[in-house]
Design a protein around this nucleic acid. Sequence first.
DNA 1: CTGAAAGCGCTTACAG
DNA 2: CTGAAAGCGCTTACAG
Lengths: 340, 340
Amino acid sequence: MSLKKSKITVSDIAKAAGVSVATVSNTLNDTGRMSEETKVRVKKAMQELGFVRDYNAAKLRSGRSRLIGVLIPDISVPLFAEFCNALEAVLSEHGYLPVVANVSDDPKRQRAMMEEVIGHGVAGIVICPSVGTTRGDFDIAITRGIPVITFSRKIEGLALDYIGSDHYQAAQLATEHLLEQGHRKFAMIAGLRETTPGRERERGFSETLKAAGIPKSDIHVRFCGYTRECGRKNALEMLATHIEFSALVCHNDLVSVGAAAELKKAGRVIGEDLALVGFDNLPESEAWTPALTSVEGYSGAIGKDVANLLIRRLEGDKAPPATQWIEPLLLVRASSSFTM
Amino acid sequence: MSLKKSKITVSDIAKAAGVSVATVSNTLNDTGRMSEETKVRVKKAMQELGFVRDYNAAKLRSGRSRLIGVLIPDISVPLFAEFCNALEAVLSEHGYLPVVANVSDDPKRQRAMMEEVIGHGVAGIVICPSVGTTRGDFDIAITRGIPVITFSRKIEGLALDYIGSDHYQAAQLATEHLLEQGHRKFAMIAGLRETTPGRERERGFSETLKAAGIPKSDIHVRFCGYTRECGRKNALEMLATHIEFSALVCHNDLVSVGAAAELKKAGRVIGEDLALVGFDNLPESEAWTPALTSVEGYSGAIGKDVANLLIRRLEGDKAPPATQWIEPLLLVRASSSFTM
DNA sequence: CTGAAAGCGCTTACAG
DNA sequence: CTGAAAGCGCTTACAG
């Protein structure tokens, strides 16, 4: 491998512009310790020679990095895709670049990926903690002083920043709406018991019904997950047990769609004899037939907030870690707008 | 900043394990130039001291990197999310980590992001080129010998690897199906004229109809884009012009859903008096009412193939750049299964 | 505002 | 298989 001058360095630029490497570095970092004229000359040389700054070398020396580790269960889940999109937009405005790792809800893989992104020198970490995360899993980041922002799923008892939709309130809104429409027999296909959204939405649902005096025998809950497939599977199981219900709350819109497919096949008419409510307000929800009632969780806005918070932390904000719940919004559509 | 021993380095490990730094490095890189016993001792020391390898320093010295730049128009488009998911899975199996940048179909931003990821020392680049990409935009990568794999959208006249669905054939399949169902008056809400999928699907549609003897006056094409919103907008415009058509082909499933919403409002009954076909076979397509006929483009499989191809290139495969078209699959569902 | 030099944490010939 | 030393391309005191 002996390409001649395969890489242009600061010292090449210094030579070409007739300045010192310090001056080139100062131009790169815009420290403002030089004349406008010199700056222009240096920039011109960089242009002409096709200089591309080596962030690795910069990071090695300065300790500063513009890489952000993003650890999520599965980027192909629309919620996370929307989150990442908004996150990336804000990060890149500030010159940061996300390094994304899918963790597949596997704590071992999460630990490996956390080490991996830290090894790549990320300045900060954004994470929706995997099922089975323990507090110690964050030590590797915390001892190094790398700011960590959690979202969507909360780790209890650890002083970490958290931003997420108010899952409890979201379920409460949905359930109260169904009570108002006259429903008295309920079912829920809930999320994962091990995660904040799963637990909190179920709690919001069950407690609201209890407060309204609905007997336990008319409340059927199954924990499942967050995919179409588990909606489908749980709907089939519910059909097999001949549970009675006129209102079904699903953990999210994907689960709703999976469940709806099976329930329709079994003769239930959604929006007429069965009310259906989901969460996340996917762009598709409105386009479905019947349009799906859903609770907007603002995952795009959360992505933005997480990015901005992380940037503040990177700039040295030492305020104590905060938990921030975003207020959800119920969007009533045809799938639940009839009265019993 | 004077934390004592905030960072454990190879020389700390060398000291702790009673070996030289060369031995530690050889353990890290598994060069196999040492006894099993020594290796174990070194690994134990790494465990105990909480060593995390600094990939930046490694890259700086060796020139080797395990970062891959991924440049796409918009990760929240399901097609790209699915692609990235599959890509990430294969890359991470091989120890590579993707650095994802959304480019928003802006060639200026694409150039900036390309330079950014190269500055971060990526070993390879995966890209769905933005609208307006010119051949010169790849020089920065090519001159540095960084392998580039393009997907979905093809850059003509540049020797770069490409993997994508056979968009022409996909449209041909869809159009032939509609002809077989007895349709004689057609409309298409096509993609972007500036992209391969947009152009090729339109060409497959128009040429198939021409070959079947459908007069031009019964073929209505509008180029639009790849979002729900543009489906909606173009459907409205078509309604306003009172075009007659019994079959509508949309650039993808998102466009289909947007268009369907407006057409339904206007009184068209999809699956009865209007046949609708999309592309990409989103997981939702089957769950819609009526279920949407769509052409599967295998974006997950393409993600896998791209990752594997890139890894071969990184391992030194010097075969000439290849273009690989993946055969699409037509999935006929209720939205188009009636006959005229 | 500039120049010369040290050093970030690795990998890599090189000599043993 | 090991040890001592150089060097990747930057940034950063330091002296001018």
